[in-house]
Design a protein around this nucleic acid. Sequence first.
RNA 1: GUCCCCAUCGUCUAGCCUGGUUAGGACACGGGCCUUUCGAGCCCGCGGCACGGGUUCAAAUCCCGUUGGGGACGCCA
Length: 502
Amino acid sequence: MGRTDEVRVRIAPAPTGHMHLGNARTALFNWLFARHHGGKFIVRIDDTDLERSSEEAVKAILDALRWLGMDWDEGPEVGGPYGPYIQSQRLDIYREYAKKLVEGGKAYYCYCTKEELDAMREEARKRGRPFKYPGKCRNLTPEERERFEREGRRPTIRLNVEAAWGSREGKIVVHDLVLGDVEFDVKEFDDFIIMKSNGMPVYNFATVVDDYLMRITHVIRASEHLSNTPKQILIYKALGVEPPKFAHVPMVLGSSKGEKLSKRHGAVAVEWYRDQGYLPEAMINFLARLGWSYDDKEEIFTVEELIEKFDLDRVGRSGSVFDINKLNWLNKQYIMMMPLSKRTDAVIPFLERAGLIKREEITPEKRRWLEKIVEAVGDRMTTLADIVDYTYFFFTDEFEYSEEGLRKWLSKEGVPEMLEEVKELLAGVEPFERGEIERALRGYVEGKGLKAIRVFQPIRVAITGKTVGPGLFETIELLGRERTLGRLERAIRFLKGRTENP
RNA sequence: GUCCCCAUCGUCUAGCCUGGUUAGGACACGGGCCUUUCGAGCCCGCGGCACGGGUUCAAAUCCCGUUGGGGACGCCA
């Protein structure tokens, strides 16, 4: 088996929906930590809440991890020596450990019903006191137990905190790698439930049993779990085993108000960003910088650099707001760095989804043309999805003149006549490529003594419908002579039609 | 309410441990240059140590308090 000093970390997502950005960030920190230290990254599915867990959610989470490029050494699909890695398949294990604790006097059966508990809670609330389970069932006689059983009551199992800790006094201290030592008074804890009456373990218990059995060395998780940690330490105590090291990383926030990131603040699912055309490299880079920093100048890190540089000592303590502006900037940086061929590959699904191309119809010749179009778009895309807005007119003649284009550039004195002249000019350009096209058009502008913009923009609107886009000469070349002339003709007719029938 | 955590430009952060910086960078924003548009690029600018007390010759940095925000207090995870 592995060296005893081998780093083993895990993420334990609950498959109740999509992969949340906050979870992705936690996963990333764990993954980077494992890779940096040459350890193991483990995925364990925390599906003990049967009601809310689903197969699809498991798949969504694994897909998101894969898309982001985080591979796991042990877990679903890959297995491993400490499996199974799905908690609902480990029920016997939890029951066995819970039973051991009961037998050792560290836990006990509790027959209090939900209703009774609620009543006690309500009572405590009325008197303005915090509710703590009073230990009613701590010392049940066999007869009492039998009576409850006969009544058909299904017991929960509670940890006997005093027995687990060995005293009613003292401080539970969490030696946190990010926050430092954090102390909790044992008195604050009541005998909390570790096994539900339906035989399922409670989060804190399943987590501890699995982390122990899976030889987890470092628990790196969001700081919202800090207050669970003393309870878990109590369970480790009861089990008589050493707890792992803990590191609570700051949460990902949704606004400067400091609230936890949620749907209210925008998209939180990793899948959404993928579908929107964000690159996994950009997401990784962005997520890594949320709560972690390397120095005072570097912003862009490749995955390799992150692995090399990441460690817990440079993780901050305060929460970080998810800022889509910065993500957008990063994403653009990564798109710009992509080699043309790769960028073309990346953009094809988006063109396809918009109904502009069909993958199976891409001949080598069409592929070359596509690459040229992507090249012409250059560094204008923020997300891959932007390709559609920048290029749809290359693929279809079905477009309208934008309001601004019409008003500002086409509806001007002499434009139809000018377009007519440009059309004739372009008809004779040989060869029909950007250099020659530019020379001809600039010659025209100069001959007329016009400002370039007053000629180029109307042409742009006439042939693309838009006021913004790739360079005009490339656009004309890529459109080809026939379509360019056709679109000029169409614009001329359109404009004449308007003046004749206002 | 109780316990716990946090606090540097609007945002991400460096600096804090080991007091002395014009408190640095990046995104965003504003302006300029370049340019056929947009984008990119370049230049300039705006903007911050939550507050109050200490300690000290000197505090973003050390100590105490206040305020603000957040998290946890479930047979959710």
